[in-house]
């Protein structure tokens, strides 16, 4: 019986400690900037996948156990097509009509600080409407290096660069950059995607890569 109070004194602090510790299990949070995850978990940079047939797929850029965390590779589950480091080699999106929208379904991919992705498109018409404009939206996970988008004209001159336009209440681990311009004159244009040259959130070079999704639209009102 004399041991009981002593045991209680030893156990009570452990109970208190256990009661006060956040319990965060695998695959419940997206990675924060620079692969930031809760202690004990690692950022899963691989594609969405299933660890085995009986488990649900882990979210990409999600914080998972070290064993489940996959490495980054552009070749997996992306639409990355190389070489496209030169504007003339960029994927041709053809004519961009009035009131149209082009959405990249698969992830694009930048695998290093020097990697460039280009997308060519052509504006063929002058659009009518109360507010014709050209919009670009680039979204990418915040878990790896930030990605930038620039709009170039046919001569390669930069017309505009994307500004961060993520919603203030958005905590979903995805950052967005937007370009909004009045209607573009008829001509050829190029979008250039690369790691943000002004950004340094690349884990000191260890996470100088990322995936992205691109959306172009030409609303007229």
């Amino acid at each position: 019986m004399a041991r009981l109070p002593r045991l209680a004194l030893q156990v009570a602090p452990l109970v208190i400690i256990a009661a006060c510790k956040p319990k965060i299990t695998t695959d419940t949070y997206y990675c924060g900037p620079e692969e930031l995850c809760p202690p004990g978990l690692s950022c899963h940079l691989g594609p969405t996948r299933s660890d085995d047939g009986n488990q649900r797929a882990s979210f990409a850029y999600s914080c998972v156990t070290s064993l489940a965390a996959g490495d980054f590779a552009c070749s997996e589950n992306t639409s990355d097509r190389e070489p496209d480091d030169e504007p003339a080699l960029g994927l041709d999106l053809m004519d961009l009509g009035c009131g149209s929208q082009v959405v990249q379904e698969d992830w694009g991919c930048i695998d290093s600080a020097g990697d460039l992705d280009h997308y060519q498109f052509h504006v063929a018409d002058v659009c009518a409407g109360s507010n014709p404009r050209f919009e670009v939206n680039l979204s990418y996970p915040i878990g790896a290096a930030p990605v930038s988008v620039d709009l170039l004209d046919g001569t390669g001159e930069t017309l505009a660069s994307g500004e961060i336009c993520t919603g203030a209440a958005d905590e979903g681990g995805v950052e967005e950059r937007c370009i909004t311009m009045p209607e573009l004159p008829i001509g050829d244009y190029v979008l250039r995607i690369r790691l943000d040259p002004d950004g340094n959130a690349d884990c000191d070079g260890a996470c100088a890569f990322n995936r992205y999704q691109l959306r172009l639209s030409t609303p007229i009102s």
Binding site: C20, I24, C31, P33, L36, P38, E171, G172
Partner: peptide, 20 residues
């Protein structure tokens, strides 16, 4: 701890410096 604790379903949130 209750605010941060998560098990099972994904919170849909990214781990941030504020949460840390």
């Amino acid at each position: 701890s209750d605010e941060l604790s998560a098990s099972g379903a994904h919170t849909g949130k990214a781990w941030s410096a504020e949460l840390e």
